[in-house]
Amino acid sequence: MDKYDVTLTVNGRTSTVSVEARKLLVDVLREDLGLPGTHIGCEHGVCGTCTVLRDGASIRSCTTFAVQVDGSEIRTVEGLADGATLHPLQDEFWDKQGLQCGYCTPGMLMRACEIIEQNPDVTPEQVREGIASNLCRCTGYQFIAEAVCSAAARMKADADAPRGARA
């Protein structure tokens, strides 16, 4: 089968890979780009474990061929933390125990990222409906929802703080 060049900017770094048209984005991220943080759960678009952001919008990377997103900017869980400093969402997931086995966590974090970026004033009800796109088998969602709400509040406070006050 022919291979196709696919250029992706993943977490700010641009790479070109040569892959079969049928190769799923999630497999390109995991195998060709060495980013195993995006997981495979159901491979039919239901569970959300493979969620990444394409040009800022969440998508299922298991029901997306990499060739379909040629030229896009992709964000994955590996792009969230700034070196040693966790993203507020990661930190709040840790604090609230918004994870148990950790398998759905990367997809859940990326979806939560989109929810907060779209609406910094997101309400707890909106968070619950928003994360309903992603299954979690361990937590029953309650502490995930708590974590997303407190991360949103923190991110808003950081954004609202006068410039000098920001760390």
Binding site: L24, H44, G45, R60, T63, T64, F65, V67
Partner: peptide
């Protein structure tokens, strides 16, 4: 692709050629 790709993952659809309109 949100209907077609899952069907292909299940191998319930096996098109020989895809014309992507994006």
């Amino acid at each position: 692709g949100q209907s077609l790709v899952p069907l292909m993952n299940f191998r319930l659809a096996q098109p020989g050629h895809l014309v992507d309109l994006r």
